[in-house]
Computed example of a mutant assay.
Amino acid sequence: MAPTSLSATATSLSWIPSEAVTGAARRAFDVGFAHYDAPPPDVIDDLDELRAADGFRFANVLSVRAGIVDGQVSEAGYADGSGVVMGSTTVRLGRLGATFAAVALPVIQREPEYRDDGTVRLVQTCGGRTALPMPRQVPHAPFVKMQAPWVWTTLALVLRPDGTAEVELAGASPFPRHWVYDATGALALKSGLTNYAGWVAHSFGARTPWGDEDSPALVTASESASERVLSRMLMTGAKKPKVISLAAGDTLTKQGMPGDELYLLLDGVLAVDVDGARLAELGPGAVLGERAVLEGGRRTSTLTAVTQARVAVAPAEAIDRDRLAELASSHRREEQTPEAELA
């Protein structure tokens, strides 16, 4: 029997990944005054508990409800509890620490968009800023800012008459990293690129959704669960990996060349080409290079930066071979059609 009413919730969590801060501000993170965040979980079980554990900087919770009339979604609106959930910022100096609550901006909720196919699309923008002052020069009026830049995400939910829902990351601030969870609470999408320098210079006032502009988000699919486990192992091991930066168009590996290092894509998008054919484009969290380690020491694909990117480089012994073999079994992209790989 078709449903007579619908409800769904999608959530974005925003957090600061390792090595994401650049320029002079990085020093505060390097000495421990400020801190990077651990990646959020694969599934949101309890948002309040995650917030209490300092598990994110802010969350956009888009909760919607609607009715079904004659096979069409109707009377759609935003449910109670739809809005922003602000985290906090903790700073430390030696043994002393202080936590500052973030400041929320007004929630923007657009009118429901009813479509000819019987679906409805609802869009919500949430965001805010840290309460800590962040004095800096900016390249346009007022040329000096004391308050921190603004962070935000714009989420969209499409409700269908059959009761299913689809989430979109319609826009986002260029910093920090944004992860998007679908109506089941599972990680579904993520922003593929962070731009700390651009965020510091431009993300306030008229250059935000509360002024005249939103920023389109470069969205990538979620990496596999095994890759998320391996990425945590690489970044939290006894020896931190070396981090390199790539410009768009730079080549990380060439097919057929020798290689014995593992790569973790921290930021940006890499293209995977085999025998000149584009098989995939991968976003942050992808672990690469394991097949050369396991299969004779030669690269099985060419990896090229589609955008500017940051990559952690680690020796093969950083991960045991059984885990690498498990990952390699899912990375035989040349044995799949591009359509199947990207589906």
Results as ranks from 00 to 15, higher is better:
residue 1 M to P: 15
residue 3 P to W: 05
residue 11 T to A: 00
residue 11 T to S: 01
residue 14 S to G: 08
residue 15 W to Y: 11
residue 15 W to V: 00
residue 16 I to L: 04
residue 16 I to G: 03
residue 20 A to C: 06
residue 24 A to M: 11
residue 26 R to Q: 14
residue 27 R to T: 13
residue 30 D to S: 10
residue 31 V to S: 08
residue 33 F to T: 15
residue 36 Y to G: 03
residue 50 L to D: 01
residue 50 L to S: 03
residue 60 N to H: 10
residue 60 N to M: 02
residue 61 V to L: 06
residue 62 L to Q: 09
residue 65 R to A: 14
residue 66 A to G: 04
residue 68 I to E: 07
residue 71 G to W: 09
residue 74 S to F: 03
residue 75 E to I: 02
residue 76 A to L: 06
residue 83 G to Q: 02
residue 85 V to Q: 10
residue 87 G to E: 04
residue 90 T to W: 02
residue 90 T to D: 03
residue 91 V to E: 07
residue 96 L to W: 15
residue 97 G to P: 02
residue 100 F to A: 08
residue 103 V to I: 15
residue 105 L to V: 01
residue 105 L to S: 14
residue 109 Q to D: 09
residue 109 Q to S: 13
residue 110 R to F: 05
residue 113 E to M: 12
residue 115 R to H: 13
residue 117 D to A: 04
residue 119 T to G: 10
residue 120 V to E: 08
residue 121 R to C: 12
residue 122 L to G: 07
residue 123 V to H: 14
residue 129 R to I: 02
residue 131 A to T: 09
residue 132 L to E: 08
residue 133 P to N: 00
residue 135 P to M: 00
residue 136 R to L: 00
residue 139 P to L: 01
residue 140 H to C: 00
residue 140 H to E: 11
residue 143 F to G: 09
residue 148 A to I: 00
residue 150 W to E: 15
residue 150 W to K: 08
residue 153 T to Q: 08
residue 162 D to V: 01
residue 163 G to P: 07
residue 164 T to Y: 07
residue 173 S to F: 05
residue 174 P to I: 04
residue 177 R to D: 06
residue 182 D to K: 04
residue 191 S to C: 11
residue 193 L to P: 06
residue 194 T to K: 00
residue 197 A to F: 04
residue 199 W to M: 05
residue 199 W to Q: 06
residue 203 S to P: 07
residue 203 S to N: 14
residue 210 W to N: 05
residue 211 G to A: 04
residue 212 D to E: 15
residue 221 A to V: 07
residue 222 S to T: 15
residue 225 A to H: 10
residue 226 S to W: 13
residue 227 E to G: 07
residue 228 R to W: 01
residue 230 L to T: 06
residue 238 A to W: 08
residue 239 K to P: 01
residue 240 K to H: 11
residue 244 I to M: 10
residue 247 A to Q: 15
residue 248 A to T: 08
residue 249 G to F: 02
residue 251 T to D: 09
residue 256 G to S: 06
residue 258 P to C: 00
residue 259 G to S: 05
residue 260 D to H: 13
residue 269 V to W: 04
residue 270 L to V: 10
residue 275 D to R: 10
residue 276 G to N: 02
residue 277 A to L: 11
residue 282 L to F: 03
residue 287 V to N: 08
residue 289 G to Q: 04
residue 295 E to G: 01
residue 299 R to I: 00
residue 300 T to W: 10
residue 306 V to F: 04
residue 308 Q to I: 08
residue 308 Q to P: 13
residue 310 R to C: 00
residue 315 P to F: 03
residue 316 A to I: 10
residue 317 E to W: 11
residue 321 R to W: 08
residue 326 E to N: 12
residue 327 L to I: 09
residue 328 A to S: 13
residue 332 R to E: 11
residue 338 P to I: 01
residue 341 E to D: 14
